[in-house]
Design a protein around this nucleic acid. Sequence first.
DNA 1: CTCAGTGTTCAGTG
DNA 2: TCACTGAACACTGA
Length: 265
Amino acid sequence: MPELPEVETARRRAERALRGKRIAAATLAPDPIVCGGLRPARFAAALRGRLVVAVRRRGKHLWLELDRRPWPLFHFGMTGAFEIDRTGAPRPRFWKVEIATEDGTRLAMTDPRRLGRVRLQGRPEEEHPLASLGYDVLEGLPPARVLAGLLARRTGPVKAVLLDQSLFAGVGNWIADEALYQAAIDPRRPASSVVAPEVARLRARLHAIVRHAVAVGADDGRFPRTWLFHHRWGREAGARTARGERIVHLTIGGRTTAFVPSRQR
DNA sequence: CTCAGTGTTCAGTG
DNA sequence: TCACTGAACACTGA
């Protein structure tokens, strides 16, 4: 479920497992789609013997900072995840990459749907592909007046603009819907029509949602019941929020969108 | 059997 | 160049 909170949670777990350790083996599943042109032999040779200095994240991208480049860079796509094992268990189903350290810790990236990506990053991380990412919603958004200036130049639906990673790195489908619900803004409205007080609300809710989701380890069972999140896909039953508000579904920017017309204007 | 899905990229259009 | 739209990608599970 990789939006920013899930990716940040994966980052913290991976860092706890790998930081300060030396890589004994790095294995790439023999699958050309996941990794582009990256070859298993090159991947293994580049990482073997390297020290893991840190695990870093920007938006939905993750990478291992090693004592020497290149560094492995991960994107989870729709269904990617990390699994960590210290017991010598078999590799998990749908594994694509495994990195083992000298003490027997193994980090696997799994990805059933194979829309995730792994690559080796030879240049400083600012250059590619992270250079095009906008503000990381957890690290901090710019002042509302700056965001208002950005939105003012966009005529597309505000929901679609929230999903634009070159503006809001880390926002995904559920966070965009949740923030618009909590800020009481109709997702179909042109971004340029969102006025200053609304931008301020949107900014505050985005930050609060992401911080809370990260604080509970992206465990959706611990999200507040008042959030749209828990209720938005209850379609057959006639979806309602915890407050009993009717939830409507439509497609915006190619993504299914849930919103509450009685609340979002 | 059909279809939706927590994401990105690219081609085509204006 | 930029902004926007829609399809493609690939596979699981409801």
